[in-house]
Amino acid sequence: AEKTGIVNVSSSLNVREGASTSSKVIGSLSGNTKVTIVGEEGAFYKIEYKGSHGYVAKEYIKDIKDE
């Protein structure tokens, strides 16, 4: 049951290796980017990222929809 969301930041949002603010940053997404959410862990969504997965803070994702 995948969902999509939109990155809701003015600059960019860090994509992390794990569901923690201390996890390594593996990339970033600019505002209004559409993401595919494959799961959630605590305050983070697990998303599809560059052929693999990454984690982003839930508070910066809006317009969550079921695909």
Rank of each mutant, 00 (worst) to 15 (best):
residue 1 A to G: 15
residue 1 A to V: 10
residue 1 A to C: 07
residue 2 E to F: 06
residue 2 E to H: 14
residue 3 K to Q: 08
residue 3 K to T: 09
residue 5 G to Y: 03
residue 5 G to L: 04
residue 5 G to C: 04
residue 6 I to H: 06
residue 7 V to H: 02
residue 7 V to Q: 02
residue 8 N to V: 14
residue 8 N to K: 13
residue 8 N to W: 05
residue 9 V to Q: 07
residue 9 V to T: 14
residue 9 V to N: 08
residue 10 S to M: 11
residue 10 S to T: 13
residue 11 S to L: 12
residue 11 S to G: 15
residue 11 S to T: 15
residue 12 S to V: 10
residue 12 S to A: 10
residue 12 S to K: 10
residue 12 S to I: 11
residue 12 S to H: 14
residue 13 L to K: 02
residue 13 L to N: 02
residue 14 N to F: 11
residue 14 N to W: 11
residue 16 R to Y: 15
residue 16 R to F: 15
residue 17 E to A: 13
residue 17 E to I: 11
residue 19 A to Y: 04
residue 20 S to G: 07
residue 20 S to T: 10
residue 20 S to V: 05
residue 20 S to N: 12
residue 21 T to R: 11
residue 21 T to C: 07
residue 21 T to W: 12
residue 22 S to R: 10
residue 22 S to F: 07
residue 22 S to L: 10
residue 22 S to E: 15
residue 22 S to T: 14
residue 22 S to Q: 11
residue 23 S to Q: 04
residue 23 S to Y: 04
residue 24 K to N: 10
residue 24 K to P: 13
residue 24 K to V: 09
residue 25 V to T: 07
residue 25 V to D: 03
residue 25 V to Y: 04
residue 26 I to G: 01
residue 26 I to Q: 02
residue 27 G to L: 04
residue 27 G to M: 04
residue 27 G to R: 02
residue 27 G to K: 01
residue 28 S to P: 04
residue 28 S to R: 15
residue 28 S to C: 06
residue 29 L to R: 01
residue 29 L to V: 10
residue 29 L to Y: 03
residue 29 L to K: 01
residue 30 S to L: 15
residue 31 G to S: 15
residue 31 G to F: 15
residue 32 N to Q: 14
residue 33 T to G: 03
residue 33 T to H: 09
residue 33 T to P: 02
residue 33 T to F: 06
residue 33 T to D: 09
residue 33 T to M: 13
residue 34 K to M: 09
residue 34 K to Y: 08
residue 34 K to D: 03
residue 35 V to Y: 02
residue 35 V to S: 00
residue 36 T to F: 15
residue 36 T to Q: 10
residue 37 I to Q: 00
residue 37 I to Y: 01
residue 38 V to P: 00
residue 38 V to H: 05
residue 39 G to A: 08
residue 39 G to Q: 04
residue 39 G to T: 04
residue 39 G to K: 04
residue 40 E to C: 06
residue 40 E to W: 07
residue 41 E to G: 03
residue 41 E to D: 12
residue 41 E to L: 09
residue 42 G to W: 04
residue 42 G to E: 07
residue 42 G to Y: 06
residue 42 G to K: 06
residue 43 A to R: 08
residue 43 A to T: 10
residue 43 A to Q: 15
residue 43 A to D: 15
residue 44 F to Y: 13
residue 44 F to C: 03
residue 45 Y to N: 01
residue 45 Y to I: 05
residue 45 Y to Q: 01
residue 47 I to D: 00
residue 48 E to P: 10
residue 48 E to H: 09
residue 48 E to V: 12
residue 48 E to K: 13
residue 49 Y to G: 01
residue 49 Y to Q: 01
residue 50 K to T: 05
residue 50 K to Q: 13
residue 50 K to H: 09
residue 50 K to M: 15
residue 51 G to Q: 10
residue 51 G to Y: 07
residue 51 G to D: 12
residue 51 G to M: 08
residue 52 S to D: 07
residue 53 H to D: 05
residue 53 H to M: 09
residue 54 G to Y: 04
residue 54 G to K: 02
residue 55 Y to F: 11
residue 55 Y to P: 00
residue 55 Y to V: 00
residue 55 Y to D: 00
residue 55 Y to H: 02
residue 56 V to H: 00
residue 56 V to P: 00
residue 56 V to W: 00
residue 56 V to Q: 00
residue 56 V to D: 00
residue 57 A to W: 10
residue 57 A to T: 07
residue 57 A to V: 14
residue 57 A to N: 14
residue 57 A to P: 14
residue 57 A to L: 15
residue 58 K to F: 03
residue 58 K to Q: 06
residue 58 K to I: 07
residue 59 E to T: 07
residue 59 E to P: 05
residue 59 E to K: 10
residue 60 Y to D: 08
residue 60 Y to H: 13
residue 60 Y to W: 10
residue 60 Y to C: 07
residue 60 Y to T: 05
residue 61 I to M: 05
residue 61 I to C: 02
residue 61 I to Y: 02
residue 61 I to R: 01
residue 61 I to W: 03
residue 61 I to N: 01
residue 62 K to Q: 10
residue 62 K to H: 12
residue 63 D to Y: 11
residue 64 I to C: 06
residue 64 I to H: 07
residue 65 K to L: 10
residue 66 D to C: 06
residue 66 D to P: 12
residue 67 E to K: 14
residue 67 E to P: 10
residue 67 E to S: 12
residue 67 E to L: 10
